[in-house]
């Protein structure tokens, strides 16, 4: 399984689309690694600093309908090559969500009220997440502030995370 622990990048806006995550002009790259410098290049988000804010982060916490727009799997890949394998939101666009699990990454939905609480408590702090895949919990930590958030993913999504993606699973089963 991939790493689902580490520092949090908060993106406080709904409807962040895949053009914002990785602009189309970079879709001519053949390698995933080449996408690394361009993650979130066109995001419309007050105060966001692409050069500073992404470095060292492993988890994204954002709002609703994350990853809408284009089907480009380059969006999850751009996160992956930057060391981010987990996005937590109150909702995802279907294709983006499926692409994440198909790559063995996680797009986890949590309740909006709970998400509001996480933003209120942690968004302005240097926050880390520890993911417990057995207990299905996220532990948000900022200094001595700790919040445990339970989550659920389906058995099928979990099997993709464990298998490292959909290709081997499908080739074996169908």
């Amino acid at each position: 399984m991939k790493n689902f622990n580490g520092k949090v990048l908060f993106l406080d806006r709904s409807d962040i689309n895949t053009d914002e995550i990785i602009p189309a002009k970079y879709l001519t790259e053949i390698s995933k690694e080449a996408l690394k410098p361009y993650l979130l290049e066109d995001i419309v988000l007050q105060g966001f600093n692409q050069a500073k804010d992404i470095k060292g982060k492993s988890v994204v916490v954002t709002r609703d309908n994350f990853g809408c727009g284009s089907s480009r799997e380059h969006a999850p890949w751009a996160f992956e090559v930057n060391g981010i394998n987990l996005v937590i939101a109150s909702g995802f666009a279907r294709i983006f969500r499926q692409n994440m699990f198909n790559c063995g990454m996680m797009a986890v939905e949590i309740d909006k009220a709970l998400l509001d609480r996480i933003f209120n408590l942690f968004a302005d702090k240097d926050t880390a997440v520890e993911t417990d895949m057995d207990k299905m919990t996220f532990k948000f930590i900022a200094d001595d502030l700790i919040e445990i958030v339970p989550f659920t993913i389906s058995e099928y999504d979990f099997s993709l995370v464990k298998a490292g993606g959909w290709v081997d699973y499908a080739d074996k089963n169908y």
Binding site: S71, E73, P76, Q98, N99, D171, Y174
Partner: peptide, 13 residues
Amino acid sequence: GVGTTDLEVGILK
């Protein structure tokens, strides 16, 4: 519409 991995499995299987 699907991503590259779903497309890949579609092509293969």
